[in-house]
Design a protein around this nucleic acid. Sequence first.
DNA 1: CATACGTGGTA
DNA 2: TTACCAAGTAT
Length: 375
Amino acid sequence: MEKWSAATIRDFRKTLLAWYDDEGRDLPWRHGRNPYHTWISEVMLQQTQVNTVIPYYQNFLATFPTVTDLANAEEPTLLKAWQGLGYYSRARNLQRAARQLVDDYHGEWPRTAAELEDLVGIGPYTASAIASIAFDQVVPAVDGNAFRVFARLLMIDDDIAKPKTRQLFTEIIQPIVDPQRPGAFNQAIMDLGSSYMTAKNPDPGHSPVKEFDASYRAGRVLDFPVKTKAPRPKSMPYYGLVIHSPAGYLMVQRGAQEMLTGYWSFPLVLQADLHTENPDATLADDVAEITRRWASDYQIPLDLAVVGGQPVSHTYTHQRWHVKLLTADLPTVPSLEFLPGKWVPAAEIAALPLPKVQEKMMARFAKQQDLPLFE
DNA sequence: CATACGTGGTA
DNA sequence: TTACCAAGTAT
């Protein structure tokens, strides 16, 4: 691993910031220095690419212009504004933190990374990003870009998948951050990481800091950073129930203890929950069991038919869902006294906050039934 | 510390 | 299709 002298550090800052001033990206959240704007952009950018974020950022600020607007927002409005961005707890945590700011901080922003971390949804990276960009605190914002850039520049071979490694990088980068322009320094590293120093197709030979790049000199750019691979997603067979009555389609809201919390979908039944004692159950067995349960648990009689085609598949970071659609068309409207759902006319479904898998189920159902889409 | 948590893009 | 990547955090 490389060590830089004080002179090298000064030289690096100068080279990096000159490039950033000349070639840094003009992004919507880089206009002005509003901590609310920085905060929203940083949370949206967690595990999400810039091009995806831009339209969401514009719409979000138009919908919730201030911390107070966000604190007072209706949850469905909030979830709808976040629909499609993923990692939906970010949206709910954003509102919780907005309420912390209003209630506990009386709208006065904490200005240091250590204090910002007390806000829910703000971890070490986001706290440092806000503190440096909005309040000029001299701290490194250690995200995936910083890991990748400095792992290569200094040939650091610690595994960045290990939580402990963050501390090492923070200590290494801290003395390199430009004390005059910490926010610009951190954003310059991000721009470097998403241009000349990408994970898969880097162009280190044209990087503005190639003279400082030990991995490039060694011809080993792609050996850094070191990162252990994630396990493959677990396969999860589901049944998706498309239940229609004269009042519309039956929709249920995802609960606080499950993923996609607060979003709406057709009722989903995990195949593994049906026959814990019979791993050899057939499709007919599963349909019979679902019918039995809906009659006894919800007092709703179903005459289920199998919807043709391959199961709807949807992959998450840790799960791969395969959803077989079943449908029932009821002649009258059953009471939902025993089931936490609601009947929604086809044309009104799209107004609900919906996860991607629900959009896929609707598209598949419409196609198989030769229906117009749910709009 | 390891795992849960979404979606879209690329090879 | 599979695998992996993209400005991480909470538990």
